[in-house]
């Protein structure tokens, strides 16, 4: 029987220690360490420019770090990233499909980059297309596909080598809710098949639904790492009452502090974070001019608390 520590070391698929990367003097990745276990779905959250995509590029060995180490499937990255990428699938943020090819041809041509024989790729294509709900689009040219179809084709393409680890950079950004839910469903299937996944996102719902564990990045630093449930439990009061109306600022100045553990006013809304909402709700019944919404705290509340409300561009 192995000790828990040894088990952890054995099952670690990705180990990152003290990773640093600067561009033009600006620290984009600042001392990031993380470990991802076999079968885990790990989400990297962060505002725009927090260093999510750069972290992914460093993990894949597409750019060299200024300091720190990355081990991916037992290979040192970037030195042996090429060997590691044999067992990896990547769904990039931007569409990188070949517009000159049909759906099936995209899979065939991509499989060849992994040195898979044509006959084997062609044997895999029907299954991949079915998984991506693209069987009827087999011979369609890429430019005729919708955004959701293109993203699903990117996902199918990332699976052509039956990878152990799948990297997804903002897999549902720019998709409508229907397309997003279909992607989520497919990603959950992959998790239940035991695939390890690393994804970046700024959709909290996506992170909460899909990820076993999360890391929140801000200004290139890892500011929190936990399961989605513990992230909420450990970082924030369990309930939120959002109060809105014309005179909410005046109301908040007078009462918010009294009824909540923590509060913030943003625009015309006061966010009151509370352990027990009852006294606040009773108080609000006496203020007809104010409307409110009472809900459990979610990951977005944690995210806003940790990274602030100001815009990032």
């Amino acid at each position: 029987m192995n000790s828990p520590l040894e088990m952890t070391a054995m099952n670690a698929i990705i180990t990152v220690n003290n990773l640093h990367k600067s561009y033009a003097g600006q620290r984009v990745v600042d001392d990031i360490s993380l470990t991802i276990q076999r079968g885990e779905c790990y989400g990297l959250l962060g505002p725009n420019g927090a260093g999510k995509s750069t972290t992914l590029r460093l993990l894949l060995g597409l750019t060299a770090p200024d300091g720190g180490t990355v081990s991916l499937l037992g290979h040192n990255v970037p030195g042996h990233a090429r060997e590691a990428r044999v067992r990896i699938g990547v769904v990039p943020q931007m569409d990188t499909l070949d517009p000159d090819f049909t759906v099936a041809e995209n899979l065939l041509v991509y499989g060849r980059y992994f040195n898979i024989p044509d006959a084997e790729i062609k044997r895999r294509i029907p299954g991949l297309l079915e998984f991506a709900s693209l069987s009827s689009k087999k011979d369609a040219m890429v430019p005729t596909l919708s955004g959701g179809m293109k993203r699903r084709l990117s996902l199918a393409r990332a699976l052509v080598n039956d990878p152990d680890v799948i990297f997804l950079d903002e897999p549902t950004t720019g998709l409508d809710p229907q397309a997003r839910h279909l992607i989520w469903q497919r990603l959950r299937e992959l998790t239940s098949q035991g695939k390890t996944m690393v994804l970046t996102t700024h959709f909290m719902e996506e992170a909460e639904r899909l990820c076993h564990r999360l890391g929140i990045l801000d200004h290139g630093r890892m500011i929190a790492q936990d399961t989605p449930q513990d992230m909420i439990r450990n970082h924030i009061e369990p309930q939120v009452v959002e109060v809105f109306g014309d005179n909410v600022e005046a109301w908040a100045a007078e009462y918010a502090q009294k009824f909540s553990q923590r509060h913030e006013v943003s625009g015309e809304t006061a966010f009151c974070y509370v352990r027990d909402a009852q006294p606040l709700l009773e108080h609000l019944h006496g203020h007809a001019e104010l409307r409110y919404m009472h809900r459990p705290a979610n990951l977005e509340d944690v995210f806003i608390k940790l990274t602030g409300r100001e815009m990032r561009d």
Partner: peptide, 14 residues
């Protein structure tokens, strides 16, 4: 424009 190189760089190619 087409990011073909980006796609290829995600495979065991350099």
């Amino acid at each position: 424009h087409q990011r073909t190189w980006d796609a290829i760089l995600n495979t065991p190619m350099t």
